[in-house]
């Protein structure tokens, strides 16, 4: 049974239909990447999965149990953590306070402390910046903070919305290496990306979204070598 299953998901913002009938599923322990052009509905898909927007139709199943219509705070408690588009760090709070908010739902303080150490191992930079306002971090550091903060919820499923956006090529490499590392530690990942090349490289499976519907899906390596994807998303071929 897949960890996450999305069936026939439709979302409308007022009169604008952003998604019509999206199906996808993420297997336990894998990385699924969701790629597509601007406005294809990637962010909307993540928001509907994590309860930020209410779908107009369709179902979201976590562990085979429906979570459609639950509030975000209820879904976080079930082990899903959403690292939103644009990082969403709390600029006027310190790095430490940002991380503490990542563990907001948890009462197992000893384990939270362990997870903090784990995050510091992944992102040593954060440990040096603990008492600094998050808004004063560089863009890359902010992205690290956003991912680290999401990890502090100890998710089984991590939703990442464009983690490489606006980062220098070198840092993009680092971020993708860390995404792989997090996945190898046992976290299932749903990765939304513009950088299709890198995303297809680290992912097990991929879904291509076009104007609110699934255009292609399958094995990431196979999709990366398909002509259509090459032409439309990898900028060559």
């Amino acid at each position: 049974m897949p960890l996450l299953e999305v069936k026939n998901l439709s979302v409308a913002y007022g009169a604008i239909k952003a998604l019509h009938g999206v199906d996808l599923s993420v297997e336990q322990g894998q990385i699924l990447t969701l790629i597509g052009c601007n406005g294809a509905g990637k962010t909307t898909t993540l928001r509907a999965i994590s309860g930020m927007v209410r779908p107009s139709a369709g179902q979201v199943l976590l562990d085979g149990k429906p979570v459609t219509g639950l509030k975000p705070h209820e879904i976080v408690r079930l082990g899903m953590s959403h690292c939103p588009e644009g990082r969403g760090i709390f600029a006027n709070l310190t790095v430490d306070e940002n991380l503490a908010l990542g563990a907001f739902m948890r009462r197992d303080h000893a384990a939270v402390n362990q997870d903090r150490q784990r995050v510091f191992t992944l992102f040593p930079r954060l440990k040096e910046r603990l008492k600094q306002n998050a808004g004063t971090l560089s863009g890359g550091e902010q992205q690290m903070l956003a991912i680290g903060r999401a990890l502090l919820a100890r998710p089984r499923l991590l939703l990442l919305d464009e983690p490489s956006l606006g980062l220098a090529p070198q840092l993009v490499q680092t971020i993708f290496r860390i995404i792989t590392e997090i996945n190898q530690q046992g976290v299932t990942i749903l990765l939304v990306e513009q950088n299709a090349h890198m995303a297809l490289n680290v992912a097990h499976r991929a879904v291509v979204l076009e104007t609110g519907a699934v255009a292609m899906s399958g094995d990431a390596k196979a999709l990366a070598s398909s002509d259509e994807v090459k032409k439309a998303y990898l900028g060559h071929g």
Partner: peptide
């Protein structure tokens, strides 16, 4: 912790909800 939740909602509502803040 609840106070931080309040402060976070002022900073970024979507992110605050993503943290599980009701």
């Amino acid at each position: 912790s609840p106070g931080r939740a309040l402060l976070s909602s002022r900073e970024d509502e979507i992110a605050a909800r993503a943290m599980g803040v009701n």
